[in-house]
Design a binder for these strands. Structure first.
Length: 589
RNA sequence: GCAGCUGUAGCUCAGCUGGAUAGAGUACUUGACUACGAAUCAAGUGGUCGCAGGUUCGACUCCUGCCAGCUGCGCCA
């Protein structure tokens, strides 16, 4: 408990614990419970932090307002607490700005604020995210998974969790055969010199449309035969189509790597579907021999109806495996290859049933790790006119969104710096900054809404960059960077924090103190929205402070100095917060 | 039919394990740049929290039943 990441909560809980012990000697209350009950008061007039007395009511056999009054009498107020009051059932604390300065701001500026251990559960965890298919095009729908997974990985790492990020691209299956079929028999274009992956993805879409058109005609039977032949060659790993697969697969992988570079993500392990395909079938056969599975209507699988999960097929009538078959082997591989204790899958919510089945089968197969497997689900991204589908081609390619956003940012904001010779901006800087801002806008947009809420993607809306957006946060960061540069900030040991008195200053101090607590909650719940909201509120408080409290032209030099400290600390928290959400923080924009 | 998710201001969304007067953004109406960066700030208008019951000192939050939308549910991935 002594190394708890929120020093203010830690010390307040000690105070309260002391008061409880003296007022109610018979009541047993743990310090951890006090810490988790503590929270910010609704507004700063009512208090900075509040302790609700409801949980004590039952054991103390008194009404919560009486309890808070009695605790107030018993509490020994130290110097760093300005005032303690009761508000009905709540015990509210006001802190001195001196206390915030010493316990929070200087710790942020020194940096040890960010090296606290935050998560209580730091066991080795694999987080699998991004499962794109080769031979299909990447679009904005894939970005939700990528941005969410990346943010969860970074947040967890910051919190002290040992994380192994992994990805699982689908490089085999009928979609590949369809794409190659079209490539061989119907495509008349030469593959472009660049962006072959996106071009290949469009072929897949064409293939689907053509196959759809030829359904019911005499071509249908012929097409099916060819597709089967292609799949067979791929399975046997030889022949013309296998060679074509090897070549075109690389084009798609190049596209994936481009997207990953853009998102600034790295994976410790790439699991390929082609790598688990045939071993997974062997695994299923092995367990079938043991009598673990049963045959039904020619297929082999397992009856999970006693768990209300239906029947899960693992070997089809034609002897091949399915998605679930592969996921069983993949999980086994993860457990054995990496000795992981927790296993998180970031996959959209349409797979919820699938993962319930897979986890249950793993449990029945005797893998204890199954209880620490978790499907982190999220709802999909749709277009205003319906679901995105790379099958039909109704998509917005990732690169289109990026380039449109960068253009808009340059046109509306950055290009004006080029016209002003005094600004010192170069074209190269403008381009680089536009990339960072567009990146921030897209990522923040993808992770600011709750996981299980659908996102309807409207390009025009996304191009508007007012209000609660990534660029708002980046702007705060950039503002602080230029402020500290212009005022020649250098950290000093002596600061008279008590000079900070304005409500905007107190609000900012209080908010800063809560950063690690917010991250803790996010990692526990595997959600990004709270940190997003926190950073936005922090930004708003800073901008308000900035507008109301002069720094360079403060009433006294001393006041200006502590205000600059406060600004710099805010910049550091913003920088770290953006970093663990995977959002770049430009120093000017 | 069964299961899961969603329903809060005109629109997009918060509201943490039930707790202090339902909050933001956007849109709309005002005001603030010869200024440490206006991608900003300050203020205002706007809500029977899908409906109906129940549990509780207290329900947007928990339970039950409806209504609406979305997504799954044996040989796709």
């Amino acid at each position: 408990m002594n190394d708890y990441h929120n020093k203010i909560y830690l010390e307040l809980s000690e105070l309260i614990l002391g008061a409880v012990k003296s007022a109610y000697p018979d009541v047993e209350l743990k310090q951890e419970d006090i810490v988790s009950a503590l929270g910010p008061a609704p507004n700063l007039k009512m208090g900075h932090f509040a302790f609700p007395c409801f949980p004590l009511a039952k054991v103390a056999k008194m009404g919560p307002p009486q309890i808070s009054a009695k605790l107030l009498e018993a509490i020994e107020k130290p110097e760093w607490v300005q005032e303690v009051i009761t508000q009905g059932p709540y015990l509210n604390f006001f802190l001195t700005t001196q206390a915030y300065g010493e316990k929070v701001v200087s710790s942020i500026i020194k940096g040890d604020f960010f090296t606290q251990k935050i998560s209580s559960d730091t066991r080795k965890t694999m987080i699998e995210y991004s499962q794109p298919n080769t031979h299909k095009e990447l679009h904005v729908g894939h970005m939700r998974n990528l941005c969410l997974g990346n943010a969860i990985v970074r947040m967890s790492q910051y919190a002290g969790v040992e994380v192994i990020p992994s990805t699982y691209p689908g490089d085999v299956g009928t979609h590949v055969a369809k794409c190659l079929w079209y490539f061989k028999y119907h495509n008349k274009e030469q593959p472009p010199a660049e962006n072959k992956g996106a071009w290949l993805g469009r072929l897949y879409s064409n293939a689907n449309n053509l196959l759809e058109d030829q359904k019911g005609t005499d071509k249908e039977e012929e097409n099916r035969k060819v597709l089967t032949a292609i799949l067979k060659e791929l399975e046997e790993k030889s022949g013309e189509y296998y060679e074509l697969w090897k070549e075109t697969r690389e084009w798609s992988i190049a596209l994936m790597k481009e997207a990953y570079a853009w998102a600034d993500v790295e994976f410790d392990r790439w699991f390929w579907e082609s790598e688990v395909d045939s071993p997974s079938l062997e695994l299923a056969k092995e367990y079938h021999k043991k009598g673990f599975f049963k045959e039904d209507d020619g297929a082999i699988g397992i009856d999970l109806s006693e768990y209300k999960l239906g029947f899960c097929i693992l070997i089809k009538r034609d002897g091949t495996g399915l998605y679930a078959t592969k996921d069983l082997l993949l999980a086994k591989k993860k457990f054995e290859e990496f000795k992981i204790k927790k296993n998180i899958y970031v996959v959209d919510n349409r797979q919820a049933h699938h993962f319930k089945q897979v986890f249950k089968i793993l449990e029945l197969m005797g893998f204890e790790e199954s209880k620490d497997c978790f499907h982190l689900q999220y709802d999909v991204v749709e277009l205003p006119d319906g679901a995105m589908s790379s099958r039909s081609g109704n998509i917005i390619p990732l690169m289109d969104l990026i380039s449109q956003m960068e253009e808009t940012i340059k046109k509306n904001y950055l290009n004006r710096y080029l016209e002003d010779a005094d600004s010192g901006w170069t074209q190269e800087e403008v381009d680089k900054t536009a990339t960072m801002v567009a990146n921030g806008a897209i990522k923040y947009g993808m992770i600011r809404v709750d996981n299980n809420r659908k996102i309807v993607f409207d390009m025009d809306e996304w191009l508007k960059l007012d209000g609660e957006t990534g660029p708002y946060l980046q702007y705060v960061h950039a503002r602080i960077c230029s402020l500290s540069e212009k005022l020649n900030y250098n950290k000093s040991d002596e600061s008279d924090w008590s000079l900070l008195k304005a409500s905007q200053e107190v609000a900012l101090l209080q908010k800063l103190s809560l950063f690690n607590s917010v991250v803790e909650g996010g990692v526990e719940q595997l959600k990004t929205i709270h940190l997003c909201a926190y950073l936005y509120e922090l930004g708003k408080l800073f901008n308000s402070f900035y507008a109301e409290c002069p720094i360079g032209k403060a009433d006294s030099k001393e006041l200006g100095k502590v205000r600059l400290d406060l600004a710099v600390a805010t910049g550091k928290v913003m920088n770290k917060g953006l970093d663990i959400l995977g959002i770049p923080a430009p120093t000017k924009m």
